[in-house]
Computed example of a mutant assay.
Amino acid sequence: MSAPSEPRAGRPEELVVALTKAGRTKIRYPAELVRDDGVRVTVRAPWAAPGVRDFGFVRFEPGDVFTEHYWRDRWFAVKEVRTGDGGLKGWYCDITRPAVLADGVLAVEDLDLDLWVSADGSCVLRLDEDEFEASGLAGQDPAAAGAAASALDELERLARSEGLAPLLA
């Protein structure tokens, strides 16, 4: 585990977020370190994929800014999504193994399950449960599959009760 840190004044510290899925790199992108308290790493990055991704319930597009929260002791990541002018779109939550930060790379393994929470909290959607089932994780690593399912349940419960803001404070 790396020591807690704050970016140096005047010059943001950069790192690379490396997201893997099923043993393969899904995406790598540069991000600005906002905060690392030794347990949670918070980074900020512009939308990193090419073009627009329209999910039907939200569009991610060039100009969007993601403030991403990763934990070393939790099985999820929460990404606050804002438009380029600061309007809140909502929170996209990935169910992941706990994050590892080493040598300037924040390594995160995506476990397929996701949760979307709209800006006003009125829309809470569990996503990709079919992909999770098809991944075979339950047979290969039952403990990880159980932790992933519990993490999704925990995030949904928080989103439907007090919201995600207290988790991110």
Rank of each mutant, 00 (worst) to 15 (best):
R97P: 04
D103Q: 14
K89N: 12
D85M: 06
L106R: 00
W71K: 06
A147I: 04
L111Y: 11
A149E: 13
C93D: 01
E80R: 12
D94W: 07
P62E: 12
R82E: 09
G139T: 07
Q140L: 14
A138Y: 00
D110W: 15
D130Q: 13
G63L: 05
A147C: 04
V105M: 05
K79C: 10
E133Q: 14
A119C: 08
D120I: 09
P98I: 03
G90A: 00
K89W: 11
G121K: 05
E109D: 15
W71A: 02
G90S: 13
T96G: 04
R72I: 08
G139A: 01
T67C: 11
L113R: 10
D114C: 14
S118K: 07
Q140G: 01
S122G: 15
W71V: 01
L125K: 06
D114F: 14
E131I: 10
A102R: 07
V117T: 08
S150F: 03
R72C: 01
A149S: 14
F132Y: 12
Q140A: 15
D153A: 15
T83H: 09
E154K: 09
R97V: 03
E68H: 08
D110C: 15
A99S: 09
A107K: 14
V124S: 05
R82S: 08
I95P: 02
G63V: 09
G104D: 02
R74M: 03
A143S: 06
F76G: 02
C123T: 13
D112M: 11
W91F: 13
A144C: 13
A77W: 03
A99C: 03
D120N: 05
P98F: 04
G139R: 07
Y70S: 07
L127S: 04
